[in-house]
Amino acid sequence: MPEVIFPGPEGRLEGRFAPAPKPRAPVALILHPHPSSGGTMNNRIVQELYKTFQRRGFATLRFNFRGVGRSQGTFDNGIGELSDAASALDWVQSFHPEAQQTWVAAPSFGAWIGMQLLMRRPEIRGFISIAPPANLYDFSFLAPCPASGIIINGEADEVVTPSGVQRLVDKLRTQKHITIHHDTIPGANHFFEHEMDPLMASVNNYLDMRLDPNCPIK
């Protein structure tokens, strides 16, 4: 799990990078929750996502947005953080220019950034959005959503309302040519404090399905 420092739009960005074990391996970018609520690349969900993709042979990067940890710059309300994410993806792709798949995965604020990133980067073919803050941020940019993915939320989330997430899922499911999976974890709050196992089971079941060579979702 090598520590890395790479260039971002406002200075250096700090990350942890797991190189892929073989050429043409897929790429995964993991984003973290809102810095004002203590979100960093060391968030528990972020670390679990990182380990999941690493075990599957992805070239996997998690990093701190600007102003977090040793990353330079100051918080920019999502605008600069989207640029940070694009720079991070560029950096990983510089080592794996022939990657056959690119994924983005994140909880909360990071999920909002990640879904904006997939609108800009057509090479992203899958996403995992955990507790996307559909009641707090505007997701209307997903018009249309260019990739299939899974949205997971907690039944007892006190920050992101389950009804708000359901409206986002329903909206995306009206679009053609993509498939949106949706799991609700019983009893889970916004941080999945006591439901990490069922959360990651949902993630891994979805990845098992999507990464199967016979999966009809491309």
Rank of each mutant, 00 (worst) to 15 (best):
M1Y: 03
E3K: 14
V4F: 01
F6T: 13
F6V: 13
P7F: 02
E10T: 13
E10P: 00
E10V: 12
R12P: 00
E14W: 00
F17V: 00
F17K: 00
A18K: 02
P19Q: 02
K22T: 12
P26Y: 05
V27S: 04
L29K: 01
I30S: 07
L31E: 02
H32A: 08
P33H: 09
P33Y: 06
P35Q: 07
P35G: 10
S36A: 13
S36Q: 12
G38P: 08
G39E: 04
T40C: 01
M41D: 01
M41C: 02
N42K: 07
N42Y: 06
Q47F: 00
L49F: 04
Y50Q: 02
F53H: 02
F53N: 01
Q54G: 08
R55H: 08
G57E: 05
G57D: 08
F58G: 06
A59L: 03
T60F: 01
T60N: 05
T60S: 10
L61Q: 06
L61D: 05
F63C: 04
F63E: 05
F65D: 04
F65V: 02
G67S: 05
G67A: 04
V68T: 07
G69N: 11
G69Y: 08
Q72A: 14
T74M: 05
T74A: 14
I79A: 15
L82N: 15
L82C: 14
S83V: 14
S83C: 13
A85S: 15
L89C: 07
W91A: 11
W91Q: 07
F95C: 04
P97R: 09
P97C: 10
E98W: 03
Q101V: 10
T102H: 10
A106L: 02
A106E: 03
S108K: 07
F109I: 09
W112L: 03
I113N: 10
G114R: 13
G114L: 09
Q116I: 12
M119Q: 15
M119D: 12
M119A: 14
M119P: 07
R120C: 11
R121L: 07
R121D: 12
P122L: 08
P122D: 11
E123R: 13
R125H: 09
R125G: 15
I128P: 06
S129H: 06
A134I: 06
S140D: 14
F141N: 09
F141H: 15
P144H: 11
S148W: 07
G149F: 08
G149I: 08
I152G: 09
N153M: 04
G154A: 14
G154F: 10
Q166L: 12
R167D: 06
L168G: 11
D170L: 01
D170M: 01
L172Y: 07
R173P: 05
R173A: 07
T174L: 11
T174E: 12
Q175Y: 04
H177D: 13
T179I: 08
H182A: 04
D183E: 14
I185V: 12
A188Q: 11
F191S: 14
F191Y: 14
F191T: 14
E193K: 15
E193I: 14
M196R: 15
L199C: 12
S202F: 00
S202Y: 00
N205E: 11
N205F: 05
N205M: 06
R210L: 15
L211K: 04
N214H: 13
C215L: 09
I217W: 07
I217R: 06
K218L: 05
